[in-house]
Structure formats: structure tokens, C-alpha cells
């Protein structure tokens, strides 16, 4: 099949339609507006609901009410506004797919690419003890593929799943082979449809009795333990590596080129790329950390994922960090430089 040549934002939108998207709710924000604009054109004609809400706060609560394959997309400021709603979804075990195309922050920041929402996406779904499952594609094809995965995981775990991209991934074009459409089951056992002859269905995250709320939380935590089996990561040129670079999303692509250039110069470098950020591939990072002599984490942030890498590496090797932020994007020569510094550090030791 001839691949299409599309922007990441549009590939996600089309992939969502092919995953059986029934409804999209959102609010415009750069750099992801191509995604809702694509769906505004294409979703209604394919039988789905497209609605631009009055705010991200409203939009995430529309998602909460949808009771079907539903998606929402945004960037940093809007993702912040969705946190309360996401907490309700997690607590009530309502699935959805939420796309965050990260931009420079904090505050209004700017619209240039960044990876500063890692903490917000992976550490907590709003307040309380809930989590999002988080997927981080590094190419337009993977953004498309992981969109399908995200819907499946959301349904399987009855939990919101985040696709964490960045402005660059959303707006770059690459060839993409789109998956065949599926028609997911329409009636889900938990949704409030008002059509049941059985017991009434109630969607809530309220448990006045602490015992009941603790039980709910145990159920959630048990679910997150089960979700460990969904861990995805990729290794590249790690076999004899002295320096392991750990990076996700667009940073990993930049790092991959740097790794190749390092190899050309005789530096044994490799790459670990987490694809699921929650659950985090801790075991893989730990294994790699036991084999290499130094780890270099690079992100478009002041250093967020590096904390998970340090936890996983657990003191086995030195973990160094290099970040650009505020919308500045690192380049292969910059990362190569960092790899060389790391390599000379271990050579000196």
C-alpha cells in the first residue's frame, strides 16, 4: 500500500477514526489544532460526533459523559485544565484517549516544541492517587500506531490513556501506512445508556466511607500492576555500548542520529527509548544500566524523566542529564558532544 504523507496531528486523527472513534471533544490550542480541524472535516461524515467545547474544562467533562470510544487533544495549558476531569475519569474508571502535544512552558510559555509535561502526564492524573497510561511516539507512523494501541488499552484497563507528543511531532510530515478500520463493540458494560432492563448503572468516583475508597484505590493500583505487562521500549546499538542514551519521543530521534555519529567516531554509544512512560520500562533501564558504564538522559525539559531513570538505575552507573527547554530543540551535534563528554568521563575513571 502506498503510504500517505501526513502531519503527526492528522495521522493521529485519522487513526482514531479508524479505531472506531465515536466522539471528539476539544478546545483549540497550538500546536495541535490540525488534529481537531481534521476531525471537524472528517468525523461527522463518518458518523462520529465532533464538538468544540467552550473550554478544556468542559471538553474533558464531555469526554467523561461520552460512554464510548472518545478522544480529546490539547497542549500544555489545556492539559493543566483537564487534570480535575482526568482525576474523575480515573476514579470512576472511564476510558478515553487524551493527546498532549507539548509546548514550551510554564504558564503561557510559547508554542514551540517541548517535553515539560512529563511529570504532569506520568506522575498523577490530577489530584488523588490515579494514573494515566502514557505512550510516547517518536514518529508519525508510531503516533498513528500507538493511537490504536491507546484506545485498546483504555478499554482494556478502563482508564484514560495519554499520548504524549510534542509540537514538532504534531507538525512534521512523514510517510504513514494507516491501519484498517475496526468497529469496536458499541455497548460497553459500564456506560450509562438509560436503556438497561438490568440494574441501574452509576458512574461515580465518590466513596464516603474510607473503607470503600481504599478498596477502590486498591483496585486501581492492582490495575496499574497488571498494566506492567504493557511496558514497551526499544533498544538501539546497545550490545557493546559504554554510553547508553535514554530519551523518548522526538528527543530519541535526535539522539539516535547522535548515537550513529558517535559510533562513526568510535564511541560505543547506544539508545534506550521508553515508548510507554507509564508504566515506565524500569527493568529494561536497570538491565542496561548494569551493562554500560554511564547513562545520559536527554529531554526537552529541565529534567523530568531523568528521575525515573535514576530510580531504575539505582546507583549502578552515573546518570548524566542534558536538556533544552522553553521551546529550544537540541540537535544531533549537541547530543554527540554530550555523548563524547560522557565517554571521556568513564575513560578517565
Amino acid at each position: 500500500m502506498m503510504p500517505a504523507f501526513t502531519k503527526g496531528n492528522e495521522a493521529i486523527a485519522e487513526s482514531a477514526i479508524r479505531a472506531g472513534l465515536r466522539a471528539y471533544f476539544g478546545y483549540p490550542v497550538t500546536p495541535q489544532s490540525e488534529l481537531p480541524e481534521y476531525l471537524a472535516r472528517r468525523l461527522p461524515e463518518r458518523g462520529g460526533v465532533f464538538l468544540q467545547a467552550e473550554s478544556e474544562i468542559a471538553a474533558i467533562n464531555m469526554v467523561y459523559g461520552a460512554g464510548a470510544r472518545v478522544m480529546i487533544s490539547t497542549s500544555g495549558p489545556g492539559f493543566s485544565l483537564m487534570q480535575e476531569g482526568l482525576s474523575y475519569l480515573v476514579g470512576a474508571e472511564v476510558p478515553c484517549v487524551v493527546v498532549d502535544m507539548m509546548r514550551g512552558g510554564p504558564g503561557l510559555g510559547n508554542i514551540a516544541p517541548a517535553q515539560g509535561d512529563y511529570f504532569q502526564a506520568t506522575k498523577s492524573a490530577g489530584h488523588g492517587d490515579g494514573r494515566l497510561l502514557v505512550l510516547a511516539p517518536w514518529s508519525v507512523q508510531e503516533a498513528c500506531d500507538l493511537t490504536r494501541v491507546a484506545f485498546d488499552l483504555a478499554d482494556r484497563y478502563r482508564n484514560p490513556v495519554a499520548i504524549l507528543g510534542d509540537g514538532l511531532l504534531g507538525q512534521m510530515m512523514e510517510p504513514v501506512v494507516l491501519p484498517a478500520p475496526v468497529e469496536p463493540a458499541r455497548d460497553v458494560a459500564w456506560a450509562t445508556t438509560g436503556a438497561g432492563s438490568g440494574p441501574a448503572r452509576v458512574i461515580t468516583s465518590l466513596d464516603l466511607e474510607p473503607e470503600a475508597l481504599e478498596a477502590r484505590n486498591r483496585r486501581l493500583q492492582e490495575k496499574y500492576r497488571r498494566a506492567q505487562q504493557e511496558v514497551r521500549w526499544e533498544g538501539y546499538r546497545l550490545d557493546d555500548a559504554d554510553v547508553a542514551v535514554v530519551a523518548y519521543g522526538i528527543s530519541a530521534r535526535i539522539a539516535r542520529t547522535a548515537v550513529d555519529r558517535a559510533r562513526d567516531e568510535g564511541v560505543a554509544a547506544g539508545l534506550v527509548r521508553p515508548i510507554t512512560l507509564f508504566p515506565f520500562p524500569s527493568q529494561a533501564v536497570r538491565d542496561v544500566a548494569s551493562r554500560v558504564r554511564i547513562v545520559l538522559v536527554t529531554e526537552l525539559s529541565a529534567g523530568q524523566m531523568v528521575e525515573d531513570v535514576r530510580l531504575a538505575a539505582d546507583g549502578r552507573v552515573p546518570v548524566r542529564f542534558y536538556g533544552r527547554f522553553g521551546g529550544m530543540v537540541s540537535t544531533p551535534p549537541e547530543i554527540l558532544d554530550q555523548i563524547e563528554q560522557a565517554a571521556s568521563e568513564v575513560r578517565a575513571a
Binding site: 483549540p28 490550542v29 497550538t30 489544532s33 481537531p36 480541524e37 468544540q52 467552550e54
Partner: peptide, 10 residues
């Protein structure tokens, strides 16, 4: 909405 590229406003 001017800034974000001409989306619908209320």
C-alpha cells in the same frame, strides 16, 4: 479565534 488560526468562537 484569531491567534490559533480562525476556529469558531461563540
Amino acid at each position: 479565534y484569531g491567534m490559533t488560526g480562525g476556529q469558531m468562537a461563540p
